[in-house]
């Protein structure tokens, strides 16, 4: 198996690794921690979902409202992720390639949505677009629906997934410095050409990883979406909201079935990422040496 890390297997360099006993203890700590905090909740989801047999599981998934929720979730992610992708690339270019005043404030502002409670994220859009909000009366007069409709859900999702791509790209692009781009620019390359030919090949893995995470979070967001959704069955319920609704209807199996789809999605995301890392390990290692 090809590995990502640069350091060759530990046996060859005893001076730069820990004693065997320490390694075992550390591995045990890591494995136990992850098993307890991450694996166990995941197992619960699948055990509960399949507890009543595969037939019940399948029935829960092809339910009309569940399918509507799946469609809506896909739609929302299909809008929110590309939007944040473009933003993330632009923001990281700006922050990594230029020195300007207020940069650290800008970086903090980009991180800000991470620290805004999902509840608040929903609330702010209600304050702007709600019937009692700043733009509410104007929107109502023109028949534009944002809150309690798809646009509101998309906006709230964009907000909560805002920093993901930028967060992944900024450190990588900072590490790579500006020499390559400066060289390209002084040779007269066009800005976009420079980006696609010089920068993109260096950042594509981070970019992909950012997109995967952004997508996973976009599909899984609960708090913010629940404030702006209105919870109309079959219309404005995303998958996480559908999970809550089913749970509240004492349909625990169905709730966990939909939840398991989301968990499955999480696993597929992670599998894709791991596969790509494995497939292109050589390239990645070379890139890290820059």
């Amino acid at each position: 198996m090809a590995d990502v890390a640069i350091s060759p297997p530990a046996v060859h360099r005893p001076v730069t690794t820990e004693p065997r006993a320490a390694r075992i203890v550390l591995i045990a700590v890591a494995v136990l921690f992850l098993a307890f905090f991450l694996l166990l909740p995941l197992v619960v989801v699948f055990v509960e979902a399949l507890g009543a047999g595969i037939g019940t599981y399948w029935k829960a998934l092809v339910d009309k409202d569940a399918l509507a929720a799946i469609r809506l979730t896909l739609l929302v992610a299909a809008i929110a992720v590309p939007a944040n992708l473009v933003f993330g690339v632009a923001a990281s270019w700006l922050i990594a390639k230029f020195e300007f005043r207020g940069k650290s404030v800008l970086t903090t502002l980009i991180d800000l949505p991470f620290s805004v409670s999902p509840v608040t994220s929903g609330l702010i859009y209600v304050l702007v677009f709600g019937a009692q909000g700043l733009l509410g009366p104007w929107l109502a007069a023109h028949g534009v629906k944002i809150i309690f409709a798809v646009p509101g859900i998309v906006l709230a999702t964009i907000f909560v997934t805002f920093p993901f791509v930028a967060r992944e790209l900024i450190p990588i692009m900072q590490d790579q410095g500006t020499e390559d781009e400066e060289a390209a620019a002084s040779l007269g390359a066009h800005g976009l050409t420079t980006f696609f030919r010089v920068t993109l090949p260096n950042i594509k893995w981070a970019l992909l990883y950012g997109v995967l995470l952004c997508n996973a979070r976009a599909m899984g967001e609960f708090g913010a979406v629940s404030v702006v959704s209105g919870k109309i069955r079959g219309q404005t319920n995303t998958m996480p909201l559908q999970v809550e609704i089913l749970y509240n209807e004492y349909s625990y199996v169905a709730a966990f079935a939909v939840a398991s789809l989301l968990a499955l999605l999480a696993l597929v995301t992670l599998a894709v990422k791991s596969f790509l890392e494995w497939r292109y390990a050589g390239e990645l290692a070379a890139q890290r040496r820059h």
Partner: peptide, 15 residues
């Protein structure tokens, strides 16, 4: 649409 009574009323107020 179902939810906590107060939250539902608020949603109707908000549009």
């Amino acid at each position: 649409s179902h939810g906590g009574s107060g939250g539902q009323a608020r949603a109707v107020i908000d549009g």
